[in-house]
Design a protein around this nucleic acid. Structure first.
Length: 252
DNA sequence: CGGATGATTCTCT
DNA sequence: GAGAATCATCCGC
């Protein structure tokens, strides 16, 4: 497992170039390591109407206009957090939404963050969350990594001592049910090289759950990976119009 | 498996 | 005041 940190220059590109390159990389935060399998690009030059930055800088999206390599964490639907990695130089308003991944380290810790779930099956109680569902979707992924509002703006480019890297290897190689040790200082994150998939294994398509720019194929995923989230077309809230299904879900 | 629905609060119009 | 880069659960097939 390659665990060298990605340099800041990696993020100094348009988000639709960074997003496919992020697949297979490792995101480490809060004692959990995730191998990214799905990502979406937003914003940047050329005005993306689906991006939070489309209508200019606000208190909410300020981090997206900041330096690349930082986490943009936002709150949505009244209960969920989603995490992005900022791209391009400052003031461009571009980022990659981390949509799904496989938890490869700290599985027990990731499961414990899913609101008391994880009880043994067979007694009529809730079944434990399957390993592949721990990071299947942007809000679930944020939960697994322990990312909250307070982590908005955190720098995910590692510039600390190299001695911390072997600790990540130990985290990943730990027993599947063992809680991962907090190998990084609380509140900091890091993106590591991981093992990028073969170019032919990367697929792209329209982004999920948005009402505009449906024809921009800026969603990228690892073909056939079981941790990729199901595609969902945007469903308008409680209106009289009936919706028709559009797009296709990845095979798995 | 696919569609419908409620939860719950923040943000910008 | 509407709508949101979502999720878990219920229902019907």
């Amino acid at each position: 497992m390659s665990t060298a940190p990605l340099p800041r220059a990696f993020f100094d590109r348009p988000s639709h170039e960074v997003a496919p390159d992020l697949l297979g990389r490792l995101i480490v935060h809060g004692g959990v390591a995730v191998r990214l399998t799905e990502a979406e690009a937003y914003g940047g030059p050329g005005e993306d109407p689906a991006a939070h930055t489309y209508r200019g800088k606000t208190a909410r999206n300020a981090v997206m206009f900041g330096p690349p390599g930082h986490l943009y964490v936002y709150f949505t639907y009244g209960m969920h957090f989603c995490a992005n990695l900022v791209c391009l130089p400052e003031d461009q308003g571009s980022a990659v939404l981390l949509r799904a991944g496989e938890v490869v380290g700290g599985v027990g810790l990731a499961r414990s963050r899913r609101s008391g779930r994880g009880a043994p099956a067979g007694d009529g109680g809730p079944r434990p969350v399957a390993d592949r569902d721990l990071g299947r979707g942007p809000a679930r992924l944020a939960v697994a990594l322990g990312l909250l509002r307070e982590h908005n703006g955190v720098d995910a480019v590692w510039e600390g001592p190299p001695g911390a890297i072997p600790a990540v290897d130990r985290l990943i190689s730990a027993a599947p049910q063992a809680d991962g040790p907090p190998v990084w200082p609380a509140g900091s994150a890091v993106v590591l090289e991981g093992r990028p998939p073969e170019p032919g294994a990367i697929r792209s398509g329209p982004r999920t759950g948005i009402s505009t720019a449906k024809d921009t194929p800026w969603r990228f995923w690892v073909d056939g990976d079981p941790t990729v989230s199901p595609y969902r077309a945007h469903m308008p809230r409680r209106r009289n119009a009936a919706a028709t299904s559009v797009g296709e879900a990845p095979r798995s």
